[in-house]
Design a protein around this nucleic acid. Sequence first.
DNA 1: GAATCACTACTCGGATAGGGTGTGTCCGAGTATACATGG
DNA 2: CCATGTATACTCGGACACACCCTATCCGAGTAGTGATTC
Lengths: 157, 157
Amino acid sequence: MSEGVEWALHSCINLAWIGPERAVPAARLAAWHELPAAYLNKQLQALARAGILASTSGPKGGFRLARPLAEISLMDVVVAVEGTAGAFRCAEIRSRGPGAVPTAGDGPACVIAQAMGRAELAWRRALAEQNLEELRQQAERRTPQAPERLRTWFHGP
Amino acid sequence: MSEGVEWALHSCINLAWIGPERAVPAARLAAWHELPAAYLNKQLQALARAGILASTSGPKGGFRLARPLAEISLMDVVVAVEGTAGAFRCAEIRSRGPGAVPTAGDGPACVIAQAMGRAELAWRRALAEQNLEELRQQAERRTPQAPERLRTWFHGP
DNA sequence: GAATCACTACTCGGATAGGGTGTGTCCGAGTATACATGG
DNA sequence: CCATGTATACTCGGACACACCCTATCCGAGTAGTGATTC
């Protein structure tokens, strides 16, 4: 899985901590964790295309959350960054070679693809059940000083 | 996810259909679905290392199932081919840069890693709950003639 | 005729090249701000 | 003093190289069978 998913999730929570008053440039979000700015920008673009973030150009521009954290699921972020394609893709090898299923005009998918699909569905469901607001609360419970530290650093030089 | 997982699963079921009497060379299993023989051999090696298959060298050698299909879960095959590493790996970016959590001597993982871990756990659980015997029965129900066709072709030229 | 031995052919096993998808970087389009200028 | 036009600096957005892992392949180690040879 892409590195960018982790960056995107952290960035969303950081955006929530900074507050909705002003947009935050990608470079500033990147500096907070010493990430390559241009590449983080690429991930944030993906979030903006997915409607999770709103982007503004020019001075005082940047990214801000397009909707509350409670309305953003882990699944939304993963899909925005990674795309909708599942990890397992059936190459339909059963329809090639001497073992080709004769009747398979365009029947149902092979049982292996179905079985892997069930597992991926469980994964997607688990991702969809968790939203970023819950993650934010868990993070604040763990390190209560984190939001204030971020705001101080951000409004500073 | 690797292509090899699909090949490995099909090969295990095909081995069960051919029967435990004799070992099957990788080249013959590959020919059934027109797969690159040497590369399929590589995947079967991984299954052998994991104890799912037993390998024999020399003439009349090849691979055979090391235990009944009912005792082989989808998870076993995926781990054998892909390794135990999960899809999402936390790079611990929260401990780098100005935003480094000060107290984090070696505390619990960040909430994001935990959340992704929960989703992966659901995926693993779904894989572990399904065994290859179930898949074989489903496949036979769908194409009852498949096992006989395979045996005929295999014992032929 | 039976046992022994060397030879052959066949299989796995790991070491060895090539391509595709992330990973990282760069420069251009667009815009809000700030300032200078004129009324 | 106020309005207006212009220049500027800053941001996103997409286009451009690089690297690593999956894919694919090859050759060597080892073994079972086979045939010749000898007692």
